[in-house]
């Protein structure tokens, strides 16, 4: 099994199957997953959908680099990052992070680290599409930038 997986795709992912795939190593006693979903409010109320764009090539490199950094801090046996792009309706899953470690503290911390860095270093951009059909690019959040501060 390839322990570190990065995928960017338009279609849905099977969260259960991805967790199962990292749950078959007897050295890993802890598997943690995070799922990000399209929410009905963001920069504005009445969000109906998101349109996600990315920078093919750089995105995959950036995500692998983030996993490598996590691997230097924790005993990360395996990790998966899947991020969707394109049109995503309300409630659709956008992102999945799965980490597998010997112990739960490492698995929780690594999953949070991967999400914090994904949000500030991987070249994805969200456009919010509102109920009335209008659309705007989401502004980067200071809180996301602040979130990576605690890992430094």
């Amino acid at each position: 099994m390839q322990p570190f997986t990065v995928r960017v795709q338009t279609g849905r992912f099977d969260t259960g199957a991805e967790i199962d795939r990292l749950s078959c190593n007897p050295a890993c006693g802890a598997v943690v997953s995070f799922s990000g979903l399209v929410r009905d409010y963001g920069d504005r109320q009445d969000v109906a959908a998101l349109a996600l764009e990315h920078y093919p090539g750089m995105t995959e490199k950036a995500l692998h680099a983030i996993i490598e950094q996590a691997g230097q801090r924790w005993q990360l046996q395996a990790a998966t990052i899947i991020h969707r792009v394109g049109y995503l309706a309300l409630g659709e899953p956008i992102v999945l992070v799965v980490t597998a470690c010997s112990h739960r503290k490492d698995a929780f911390a690594a999953a949070e680290f991967l999400m914090d860095f994904l949000k500030t270093a991987a070249p994805f951009w969200k456009k919010e599409i509102l109920q009335d059909g209008s659309a705007h690019w989401v502004e980067a959040k200071h809180s996301d930038q602040a979130a990576i501060g605690r890992w430094q």
Partner: peptide, 29 residues
Amino acid sequence: VACNQELAGPDSALRDGDEVAIFPPVTGG
């Protein structure tokens, strides 16, 4: 600014054939 898919700064050197990207702060996840 990214040069050949790595983040670049103002002093980063440019060479013939480089891929240079300019984009807003990222908002994925």
